[in-house]
Design a protein around this nucleic acid. Sequence first.
DNA 1: GGTAAGATTGTCT
DNA 2: GACAATCTTACCG
Length: 157
Amino acid sequence: MQGIGGAIVETEAYTRDDPASHSFRGPTARNAAMFGPSGHAYVYRSYGIHWCFNVVCEAGSAVLVRAIEPLLGIETMARRRDGTNVRLLCAGPGRLCQALGIDRDCDGMPIDGTPMAIAAGRPKAPVVASPRIGITKAVDRKWRFCLAGSAYLSRPA
DNA sequence: GGTAAGATTGTCT
DNA sequence: GACAATCTTACCG
Protein backbone atom coordinates (compact mmCIF):
# COMPACT_ATOMS: atom_id res chain seq x y z
CA MET A 1 0.00 0.00 0.00
CA GLN A 2 1.27 3.37 -0.98
CA GLY A 3 0.57 6.20 1.40
CA ILE A 4 1.88 8.36 4.15
CA GLY A 5 1.94 7.66 7.85
CA GLY A 6 3.97 6.61 10.84
CA ALA A 7 3.94 5.65 14.49
CA ILE A 8 2.08 7.83 16.94
CA VAL A 9 4.50 9.09 19.57
CA GLU A 10 2.58 11.86 21.29
CA THR A 11 -1.08 12.33 22.21
CA GLU A 12 -3.28 14.31 24.56
CA ALA A 13 -6.66 13.38 26.05
CA TYR A 14 -9.72 15.61 26.17
CA THR A 15 -13.01 14.66 27.80
CA ARG A 16 -16.45 16.17 28.09
CA ASP A 17 -15.98 17.34 31.69
CA ASP A 18 -12.55 18.79 30.95
CA PRO A 19 -12.54 22.62 31.02
CA ALA A 20 -9.77 22.64 28.41
CA SER A 21 -11.82 20.56 25.97
CA HIS A 22 -13.86 21.97 23.12
CA SER A 23 -16.68 19.65 24.17
CA PHE A 24 -16.84 21.08 27.69
CA ARG A 25 -19.69 23.46 26.93
CA GLY A 26 -21.67 20.90 24.99
CA PRO A 27 -22.19 20.17 21.29
CA THR A 28 -21.70 23.03 18.82
CA ALA A 29 -21.24 23.36 15.09
CA ARG A 30 -17.48 23.25 15.46
CA ASN A 31 -17.13 20.24 17.71
CA ALA A 32 -20.03 18.26 16.23
CA ALA A 33 -17.65 15.52 15.13
CA MET A 34 -16.51 15.14 18.72
CA PHE A 35 -20.00 14.00 19.65
CA GLY A 36 -20.28 11.77 16.61
CA PRO A 37 -19.44 8.08 16.28
CA SER A 38 -16.24 6.84 17.91
CA GLY A 39 -13.35 6.06 15.64
CA HIS A 40 -14.01 9.14 13.53
CA ALA A 41 -11.82 12.18 13.05
CA TYR A 42 -12.33 15.57 14.64
CA VAL A 43 -10.41 18.28 12.82
CA TYR A 44 -10.46 21.92 13.90
CA ARG A 45 -8.51 25.04 13.04
CA SER A 46 -6.11 26.39 15.59
CA TYR A 47 -5.18 30.04 15.80
CA GLY A 48 -6.66 30.53 12.36
CA ILE A 49 -3.62 29.00 10.73
CA HIS A 50 -3.14 25.37 11.59
CA TRP A 51 -5.22 22.20 11.67
CA CYS A 52 -5.36 19.81 14.60
CA PHE A 53 -6.29 16.16 14.23
CA ASN A 54 -8.24 14.25 16.89
CA VAL A 55 -9.64 10.75 17.18
CA VAL A 56 -13.09 10.53 18.75
CA CYS A 57 -13.30 7.96 21.57
CA GLU A 58 -16.85 8.37 22.84
CA ALA A 59 -19.40 11.17 22.85
CA GLY A 60 -17.55 14.31 23.87
CA SER A 61 -14.19 12.65 24.34
CA ALA A 62 -11.30 12.64 21.91
CA VAL A 63 -7.57 12.14 21.65
CA LEU A 64 -5.43 14.82 20.04
CA VAL A 65 -2.64 13.33 17.95
CA ARG A 66 0.24 15.74 18.51
CA ALA A 67 3.12 13.97 16.83
CA ILE A 68 4.06 10.87 14.86
CA GLU A 69 7.33 9.28 13.79
CA PRO A 70 7.35 9.52 9.96
CA LEU A 71 7.70 6.08 8.37
CA LEU A 72 5.82 6.12 5.04
CA GLY A 73 5.76 8.80 2.38
CA ILE A 74 8.46 10.89 3.98
CA GLU A 75 9.27 12.47 0.64
CA THR A 76 5.68 13.60 0.24
CA MET A 77 5.67 15.07 3.71
CA ALA A 78 8.94 16.89 3.11
CA ARG A 79 7.56 18.30 -0.14
CA ARG A 80 4.39 19.57 1.56
CA ARG A 81 6.42 21.12 4.32
CA ASP A 82 9.03 22.50 1.96
CA GLY A 83 12.00 20.32 2.82
CA THR A 84 12.01 20.60 6.57
CA ASN A 85 14.07 18.34 8.78
CA VAL A 86 12.46 14.88 8.93
CA ARG A 87 12.49 15.13 12.69
CA LEU A 88 10.20 18.18 12.53
CA LEU A 89 7.85 16.94 9.80
CA CYS A 90 5.19 15.73 12.22
CA ALA A 91 6.42 17.10 15.57
CA GLY A 92 3.30 19.04 16.58
CA PRO A 93 -0.43 19.07 15.73
CA GLY A 94 -0.17 21.71 13.04
CA ARG A 95 2.89 20.19 11.43
CA LEU A 96 1.38 16.73 11.50
CA CYS A 97 -1.74 17.87 9.68
CA GLN A 98 0.24 19.76 7.08
CA ALA A 99 2.48 16.76 6.43
CA LEU A 100 -0.44 14.35 6.16
CA GLY A 101 -2.57 16.74 4.14
CA ILE A 102 -5.33 16.86 6.76
CA ASP A 103 -7.81 19.72 6.54
CA ARG A 104 -11.46 20.42 7.28
CA ASP A 105 -12.53 17.91 4.66
CA CYS A 106 -11.31 15.21 7.03
CA ASP A 107 -13.55 16.42 9.85
CA GLY A 108 -15.96 13.65 10.84
CA MET A 109 -14.32 11.17 8.52
CA PRO A 110 -14.09 7.55 9.70
CA ILE A 111 -10.52 6.37 10.23
CA ASP A 112 -11.03 2.64 10.31
CA GLY A 113 -10.52 2.24 6.58
CA THR A 114 -9.87 4.20 3.41
CA PRO A 115 -8.40 6.73 3.11
CA MET A 116 -7.33 6.86 6.73
CA ALA A 117 -6.63 4.11 9.21
CA ILE A 118 -5.09 3.66 12.63
CA ALA A 119 -3.66 0.34 13.74
CA ALA A 120 -3.03 -0.77 17.30
CA GLY A 121 0.47 -1.67 18.32
CA ARG A 122 2.80 -2.09 21.23
CA PRO A 123 4.91 0.95 22.16
CA LYS A 124 8.63 0.46 21.59
CA ALA A 125 9.48 2.47 24.69
CA PRO A 126 7.80 3.42 27.97
CA VAL A 127 4.93 5.89 27.68
CA VAL A 128 5.19 8.80 30.08
CA ALA A 129 2.42 11.16 31.20
CA SER A 130 2.97 14.89 31.57
CA PRO A 131 0.97 18.15 31.65
CA ARG A 132 -0.68 19.12 28.39
CA ILE A 133 0.77 21.85 26.21
CA GLY A 134 -0.63 25.13 24.99
CA ILE A 135 -3.75 25.20 27.15
CA THR A 136 -4.76 27.60 29.91
CA LYS A 137 -7.28 25.48 31.82
CA ALA A 138 -6.86 22.27 33.81
CA VAL A 139 -3.13 22.53 33.26
CA ASP A 140 -2.46 20.27 36.22
CA ARG A 141 -4.05 17.26 34.55
CA LYS A 142 -1.25 15.09 33.25
CA TRP A 143 -3.07 13.87 30.15
CA ARG A 144 -0.27 14.20 27.64
CA PHE A 145 1.19 10.84 26.75
CA CYS A 146 4.39 10.52 24.81
CA LEU A 147 6.89 7.85 23.91
CA ALA A 148 9.89 8.22 26.21
CA GLY A 149 13.04 9.25 24.43
CA SER A 150 11.44 9.67 21.00
CA ALA A 151 13.18 12.20 18.77
CA TYR A 152 9.90 13.11 17.09
CA LEU A 153 8.07 14.78 19.97
CA SER A 154 6.89 18.37 19.65
CA ARG A 155 8.58 18.94 23.02
CA PRO A 156 10.72 16.68 25.18
CA ALA A 157 8.94 14.78 27.92
C1' DG B 1 -23.45 42.75 15.22
C1' DG B 2 -19.02 43.29 17.57
C1' DT B 3 -15.27 41.56 20.30
C1' DA B 4 -12.16 38.33 22.63
C1' DA B 5 -9.91 33.98 23.00
C1' DG B 6 -7.67 29.80 21.29
C1' DA B 7 -5.45 22.10 21.99
C1' DT B 8 0.25 26.67 17.27
C1' DT B 9 4.18 27.66 14.52
C1' DG B 10 7.73 30.34 12.33
C1' DT B 11 10.70 34.17 12.49
C1' DC B 12 13.24 37.89 14.54
C1' DT B 13 16.25 39.83 18.30
C1' DG C 1 13.25 34.09 24.52
C1' DA C 2 9.48 36.94 22.68
C1' DC C 3 6.07 38.18 19.40
C1' DA C 4 3.31 38.36 15.17
C1' DA C 5 0.30 35.90 11.81
C1' DT C 6 -4.55 34.62 10.83
C1' DC C 7 -9.64 32.95 11.18
C1' DT C 8 -13.39 30.50 13.15
C1' DT C 9 -16.26 30.05 17.03
C1' DA C 10 -18.25 31.57 21.32
C1' DC C 11 -20.15 34.95 24.19
C1' DC C 12 -22.08 39.49 25.24
C1' DG C 13 -24.85 43.55 24.27
